[in-house]
């Protein structure tokens, strides 16, 4: 059952991606990318990544769509048709070549099978993370499980530096958007401008 659902959902993902590639109306493309995100969130649930699915559903289908719509309102909503009829054959050829090379690479017998428990990814640090859910402490003297969600403990404690870096990246992106588009404090300025005008009128 899970296998069948996996097959179907991934096929839907491919169909949506093809539709995104073909459409020229950017509003349609935005809505389709929301659908694409929601579909990938369902796939994540199927593959046991509940935290990731939660994030993808909230971020990909929610915030990204709103931001794309906001950007479309400030720019064009229709992509221009391409000028040269055969211009896309070069990229298409390149993509087909690269895709075939990658698919050939997956046929290597050493490539871990999907779902295999003996894959290298599962045999190094991951069992340790699962065994000692309370980080650092677990190494010297094991303590009972305080926090059952291993993703949270790994995120905030074991890989705390990593997450700090990610938060700084988000911070930087936010500051950069503020620099590019203005921090959204224009209203205060307008009020001040009106106040000074009123002052002039009085004088």
């Amino acid at each position: 059952m899970i296998v069948a659902t996996n097959l179907a959902l991934l096929a839907f993902l491919v169909i949506t991606a093809c539709a995104i590639a073909r459409m020229r109306n950017l509003f349609v493309v935005t809505m389709l990318s929301g659908i694409y995100s929601l579909l990938s969130a369902t796939v994540f649930v199927l593959l046991d990544a509940v935290d990731v699915a939660f994030t993808e559903a909230a971020v990909g289908a929610g915030i990204t769509t709103v931001l794309l719509l906001g950007a479309l309102l400030l720019s064009n909503s229709e992509a221009r048709p391409r000028k040269h009829r055969f211009a896309h054959y070069g990229p298409l050829l390149l993509v087909i070549l690269m895709g075939s090379a990658l698919i050939y690479a997956t046929l290597d017998p050493r490539m871990p099978k999907f779902g295999g428990a003996q894959a290298p990814a599962h045999t190094r640090v991951a069992p340790e993370y699962l065994r000692d859910t309370v980080r650092q402490v677990g190494r010297s003297k094991p303590t009972p499980v305080h926090i059952p969600n291993v993703v949270t403990t790994t995120l905030a404690s074991y890989r705390g530096f990593d997450t700090l870096g990610e938060v700084v990246v988000i911070f930087t992106a936010g500051v950069a958007v503020m620099i590019l588009l203005g921090g959204g404090t224009y209203r205060q300025r307008r009020r001040r401008g009106k106040a000074s005008e009123a002052g002039k009128a009085d004088g």
Partner: peptide
Amino acid sequence: SNPLPHVLILTAIVVGVATTSLGLALVV
């Protein structure tokens, strides 16, 4: 299932939307 990829991707998704918004700001 292996929790480590989940952790990496969880943060990558949110960083992804932050960088996308930066790209959209540049487009505007």
